[in-house]
Amino acid sequence: MDPFLVLLHSVSSSLSSSELTELKFLCLGRVGKRKLERVQSGLDLFSMLLEQNDLEPGHTELLRELLASLRRHDLLRRVDDFEAGA
């Protein structure tokens, strides 16, 4: 399986429902409101961002910004580990 997708799945499974709600709010300018209403998990949101090329294995800035906004430094370390091994 693609290591970047494994990372996104790992991050998604670590998010609380309130954190997902916050991420959806933060992505309002990037993803349409109707699409965001269908998001049920972090993976749903990340999939939309992947489709729009806002997220890519070599383009993790948005993911970092979102996780920093949540103050999830543990998840930021996972992104660091991914990039160190990528």
Rank of each mutant, 00 (worst) to 15 (best):
L66Q: 04
L67P: 02
R77F: 05
S10L: 08
R72V: 02
L49T: 00
E83D: 11
E83G: 05
S12T: 04
L50T: 15
D2N: 11
D80E: 09
S16N: 09
Q40L: 08
V11M: 07
L50P: 02
S12K: 01
H9T: 14
R72Y: 01
F46E: 03
S10T: 12
L36M: 11
L62R: 05
L76W: 03
L5P: 02
F4Y: 09
Q40S: 15
R64L: 03
M1Y: 06
R72P: 02
G85L: 10
S41H: 07
V31G: 03
L20I: 08
L63I: 07
L49S: 02
Q40W: 07
L7K: 02
E37D: 13
L28H: 14
V6S: 15
C27S: 07
L66N: 02
L49V: 04
L8H: 02
L36N: 01
V31C: 14
L20N: 01
E51T: 08
L5N: 14
N53A: 10
L75K: 01
R78V: 09
E56F: 13
H59S: 13
L66E: 01
M1K: 12
E51I: 06
S13R: 15
L36Q: 04
E22P: 00
L23R: 01
A84C: 14
R78F: 09
L70H: 03
H73Y: 12
L45E: 02
S10F: 09
S41K: 08
L7A: 03
L20S: 02
M48T: 09
E22C: 08
S14H: 07
L7S: 01
S69K: 14
L28A: 15
S18F: 09
K33V: 10
T21H: 13
F4G: 01
D80M: 08
H73P: 14
V6F: 12
S69E: 11
T21C: 08
E19V: 00
L63S: 02
D44W: 02
E51F: 07
S13P: 05
K35I: 02
L15Q: 02
L45P: 00
T60Q: 03
V31S: 04
R72S: 02
G58S: 09
V6C: 13
L36Y: 04
L26C: 06
M48A: 14
S41V: 07
G85Q: 13
L63R: 02
L67W: 02
R78A: 12
L50Q: 10
